[in-house]
Design a protein around this nucleic acid. Structure first.
Length: 435
DNA sequence: GCGTTACTCATTGTCGTTCG
DNA sequence: CGAACGACAATGAGTAACGC
């Protein structure tokens, strides 16, 4: 087992230590314990936390503490009675231990918090640790992951709390780049994770299926229902014996989004309706006003198909790919082009095929018409780039209005060379054939 | 704020089934 | 055959919602 999980163990050790402490707590005690940890984390985040832990005392801000108590909980307000209960629950937390190493054979218990006090005048929650309790066991949480009280407090199953925190630790802080999204856990490991032992939970040690049904199953159900994770698992069997569970856990899609979410609002929330302008001046003023700090067009004439242009806060055109403002001449040309192609404004999610089609519509191609075996001019309608990204199919219109296809003949590069603004007469540029 | 009620969770246990 | 599984029930503890 040590071999199998060696990758994670250094991180897990801290966590397991924590869990073993936690498993001895009642549900309420777990809640208050987590509240305390997240208060510390929250204060560290805002820089308000003064590290007094080495002296065996911890001071927390009462408002932050209350805020954390409320997170994810159904209660709307914390009153004095609830604070009293919380303090009582805290001081009641004990840790039982057994040592059996070499000559040593001891059992014992110690309190984790000797004293917990709220001073309403200074607005402080102060906690004094029991002498035996090593504070480094308490605080590693801040190193592996931020507690998600929001979700933790929606769970009514204590195993859901433990399992969820375990997965969160493996995923890490970044939803988009999870540290891990799957793990195989041996049943013995799960028992230690949940703090299940032979003396206190006979049936869970005797009968694995009962263990799974009563602990893992409801925990996974609650995590899937209430939290930001989706969890599934497979039972791995040796013969009939379940020896391990293979878990898969991923952030729910709606929580991975933030990156994508940032782009659409800046790009597509632009005015949906684009008025037609008869005067260039009006057009330009409207575009600058509507698209300030936003991308306005993609792949305009003479630019690469994926080059997006945006309007800077000062109203200048700015090439997003090269990160440069356009020089005055280019800007003037592009403004003129945009005025001609007003339907392109705001469409910034176009594919290469769409950009080339829109940019070249109604230009001319000079080809051989096989049906009459003559060279003719046809009008470019549409291009579809093939999967290889090099060749393309082209849709053209004959003079009589009939639509024809040129399949897989042109490369994109050759097509661009072949397209002309005016009909050609005698020169043969290329020998593309239409049937 | 208090007591009642309904519900969920945690744990143990029984019993029949299945598969090695 | 027997070990392990799985369905189901019983029980106590804890919690939330409700009405007074």
């Amino acid at each position: 087992m040590a071999k199998k999980y060696s990758l994670d163990l250094y991180k897990h050790n801290d966590f397991i230590k924590m869990v073993q402490v936690k498993k001895q707590m009642s549900f309420q005690q777990q809640r208050i314990f987590d509240t305390m940890l997240s208060t510390v984390q929250e204060m560290k985040k805002t820089g308000d936390f003064i590290d007094l832990v080495s002296e065996g005392e911890l001071r927390m801000d009462l408002d932050v503490f209350k805020e954390q108590m409320l997170r994810g909980s159904k209660i709307k307000k914390i009153n004095r009675k609830e604070l009293e209960d919380a303090l009582e629950a805290m001081v009641d937390i004990k840790f039982k231990y057994t040592i059996k190493e070499g000559n040593q054979d001891k059992i014992g218990t110690f309190v984790i918090f000797q004293k917990a006090e709220i001073d309403f005048n200074t607005g402080e929650v102060s906690v004094i640790f029991g002498k035996e309790f090593r504070t480094e066991n308490l605080l590693p949480t801040s190193n592996y992951t931020a507690l998600s009280l929001e979700f933790l407090n929606t769970f009514s199953s204590q195993y859901a709390r433990l399992l969820y925190q375990y997965f969160k630790m493996l995923i890490g802080k970044n939803y988009n780049k999870p540290f891990r999204t799957d793990i195989v856990l041996e049943i013995d490991f799960i028992k230690s994770l949940f703090g299940i032992n032979e003396i206190e939970h006979k049936m869970y040690t005797k009968n694995t299926s009962v263990l799974l049904k009563n602990t893992i199953e409801p925990a996974v159900k609650q995590i899937n229902e209430f939290s930001d994770l989706i969890v599934s698992y497979d039972k791995l069997k040796r013969g009939r014996k379940i020896y391990s569970l293979a878990f898969e856990f991923k952030p729910k899609p709606e929580y991975i989004k933030p990156k994508e979410e940032e782009i659409p609002p800046t790009n597509t929330t632009s005015p949906l309706f684009i008025p037609e302008f008869k005067k260039f001046r009006d057009f330009r003023d409207w575009v600058v006003e509507s698209y300030r700090n936003k991308e306005v067009i993609i792949g305009p004439n003479n630019y690469l198909y994926n080059t997006a242009i945006k309007i800077t806060s000062l109203g200048y055109l700015h090439n997003v790919v090269s990160c440069k403002d356009l020089d005055p001449d280019s800007a003037q040309n592009l403004w003129a082009w945009m005025y001609e192609h007003q339907d392109r404004i705001g469409k910034i999610n176009l594919s290469q095929s769409e950009v080339l089609t829109l940019n070249n519509k109604d230009r001319y191609l000079y080809v051989i018409d096989q049906s009459i075996n003559k060279k003719v001019n046809v009008i470019f309608q549409e291009v579809n780039i093939l999967e290889n990204g090099v060749h393309c199919d082209v849709v053209v219109k004959r003079e009589d209005g009939e639509i024809k296809n040129i399949k897989n003949y042109y490369t994109i590069e050759k097509l661009m060379e072949a397209l002309q603004d005016k009909p050609l007469l005698d020169e043969v540029v290329l020998e593309a054939k239409i049937l």
